[in-house]
Nucleic acid binder design. Structure first.
Length: 267
DNA sequence: GCGATCCTGGCC
DNA sequence: GGCCAGGATCGC
């Protein structure tokens, strides 16, 4: 469910965690823990102080002073909640981190497409998921040419599929891919190899603007997205094509994902 | 590169 | 009952 802007909002909403001490960690029997085990995560985190929250693509990283980090991906249905009062545990709760002051962080993920993993080095390069990610959309150390070269490595990918490929630019999902292509006035079916440099640059500029808009409007709440303190987004009011099939906006399916676009304006 | 697949819930 | 969903991986 959450794409980059939503994960960014979740990260910001969880700032109150910084400085808290982990007292205890609980996992459900089917928690989507990858590459490690719930027992190891518990052992690593217990007694640690949360020092920072970071985001890489759609991954949220909760750092401690060790420098161990908990790496969370929310998949299609994951939701994090920072709780200061006792509330009953909803169905499909898979992890709860209890802090020494009685507050806690709860992860609920009905479909379990998300992942819980660890990183034990400062740059996250030891984590198999983080290692695969491409550029951060606003990385100031990368030039337009760097981004273009990333796209050019996949000449046969349709532009829509290229945007969804996390190894090129990290963090774009189905909503923002459709919106960015509309903003760039490019047909999602066009292949990277049939696209010139000026068009790829246009696409990158559109991606940046679209993600920034998503953050400015605090994310897209179509059904149930909320940040860590329960705040919903309002970017859904500003979507131009996603979910808006009508006489001029077409819905097609690419790589098993729906794509909405305006075939007259996007070429 | 593409389609099937992992999973649950909501809606028609 | 069937279809759809904000994601990513796996096998061909």
């Amino acid at each position: 469910m959450p794409e980059l802007p939503e994960v960014e909002m979740i990260k910001r909403s969880l700032a109150p965690l910084v400085g808290k001490t982990v007292a205890r960690v609980w996992f459900s029997r089917v928690a989507p823990v990858e590459t490690t085990t719930p027992a190891k995560i518990t052992r690593f985190l217990r007694g640690q102080i949360i020092t920072a929250l970071a985001r890489r693509g759609k991954y949220l990283i909760i750092r401690t002073d060790r420098p161990i980090g908990l790496v969370l991906h929310l998949g299609m249905s994951g939701k994090l909640s920072f709780l200061e009062t006792l509330t009953p545990q909803p169905n499909h709760t898979h992890m709860e981190i209890f802090f020494s002051d009685g507050s806690r962080l709860r992860l609920v993920d009905p479909r379990r497409f998300g992942t819980i993993s660890l990183t034990v080095c400062p740059d996250g390069s030891d984590n198999a998921f983080l290692r695969k990610l491409g550029f951060e959309y606003n990385d100031p150390t990368r030039t337009i040419e760097d981004f273009t070269a990333q796209f050019r490595r996949h000449p046969n990918l349709a532009l829509k599929a290229a945007l969804l490929h996390q190894g090129i630019i990290a963090g774009i999902g189905n909503i923002y891919a459709c919106e960015a292509l509309f903003r760039a006035r490019l047909d999602p079916r066009r292949r990277v190899g049939e696209t010139n440099d000026a068009e790829l640059k246009r696409l990158l500029v559109a991606v940046r603007k679209t993600l920034e808009l998503g953050i400015r409007w605090q994310g897209t709440t179509l059904r149930d997205y909320q940040d860590g303190r329960g705040t919903k987004g309002s970017m859904q009011k500003h979507l131009k094509v996603y979910g808006r099939a009508n006489r001029s906006i077409l819905r097609i399916v690419q790589n098993n994902r729906a794509t909405w676009f305006h075939p007259i304006l996007q070429r």
